[in-house]
């Protein structure tokens, strides 16, 4: 096929994305570097010296980090279990993991409001058996955010890891066992190292996803802000476009830096050759 035609086919999509994605992003980033026509970093220095913003940034990073760690710790063994199931069982468990993934994040966060709320399941149950007198306030705390985010992203890391583990040739595990390795040491010496690239990719998805998620912190976080809700607040409630632009830019930078670092790490752990 002539190259001219190929470019013609690509052109409409490319123009569309340039106009409605690349240009707006570039303009936003650009606008943060100028004030009254003067080049300046003042928008950023302002934020990075503001205790309130730093607290929000810290909470966001902590919540995202905790979410990632918990997802990995839970997801890894469960994914291994699923990957070893016979096809039928595997399909069922995968489908049950994919279903929440496709369900609206509003619905999923709302479900945790039912569970964690003052009149929610947990408080009712605990008070019912007399363990507590006053309802616990779990909802509208960073803990609630972490629970909601783990719920949001666990399926993602599960299916990513199952995909990776399924691709590990079972002969390798059998080879290790024939060489004297127990089931556990075959897991530790073969499955774990070969899953690391997939684990890193899964972790990127979870970490970046938690870092930028809006719905879950908005519903479960209460007054506690994270950067995404802070961005929204600045843009819509406070109409502070400069601040919002600077926050948006920082979110992008953090996202890309995390992706770049993790990709590098994943490449390093990839099987050689």
């Amino acid at each position: 096929m002539k190259k001219r035609y190929l470019y013609m086919l690509l052109m409409p999509g490319l123009l569309f994305l340039t106009l409605f994605m690349i240009f707006p992003l570039a303009a936003t980033v650009g606008s943060t570097l100028f004030q009254n026509g003067q080049f300046t970093f003042s928008h950023y220095t302002q934020f990075l010296t503001d205790a309130y913003f730093l607290e929000i940034l810290g909470t966001t990073l902590l919540v995202s980090f905790m979410t990632t760690i918990i997802c990995v710790a839970i997801g890894f063994p469960v994914a291994y279990y699923i990957s070893k199931l016979p096809p039928r069982g595997k399909s069922i468990l995968l489908a049950l993991a994919i279903f929440p993934l496709l369900t609206s994040s509003v619905v999923r966060s709302f479900s945790w409001m039912i569970v964690l709320g003052k009149n929610g399941l947990i408080n009712n149950a605990l008070m019912g058996i007399g363990l507590i007198q006053e309802p616990l306030s779990i909802l509208y705390t960073p803990t609630a955010m972490i629970i909601g985010l783990v719920h949001l992203f666990l399926p993602l890391i599960l299916i990513t890891l199952v995909g990776v583990m399924e691709n590990i040739n079972h002969d390798l595990v059998e080879a290790a066992q024939s060489l004297g390795a127990s089931r556990f040491s075959a897991f530790r010496k073969i499955v774990v190292p070969l899953s690391i690239p997939g684990l890193i990719i899964g972790s990127i998805l979870v970490f970046v996803g938690s870092l930028t998620a809006y719905t879950t912190p908005a519903l479960l976080g209460g007054k506690q802000r994270v950067i995404s809700t802070f961005l929204y607040q600045n843009a819509i409630t406070l109409n502070d476009w400069n601040a919002a632009s600077a926050i948006a830019t920082m979110m992008m930078i953090i996202t890309f830096v995390v992706i770049a670092i993790m990709n590098k790490a994943a490449a390093k752990f990839n099987p050689k050759g």
Binding site: L172, S178, G180
Partner: peptide, 19 residues
Amino acid sequence: PINKRNFGLVFQSYALFPH
């Protein structure tokens, strides 16, 4: 169990540990 048999096994796929 397999790992207590001390048999050497050569696979069709070779099954070399890629890492």
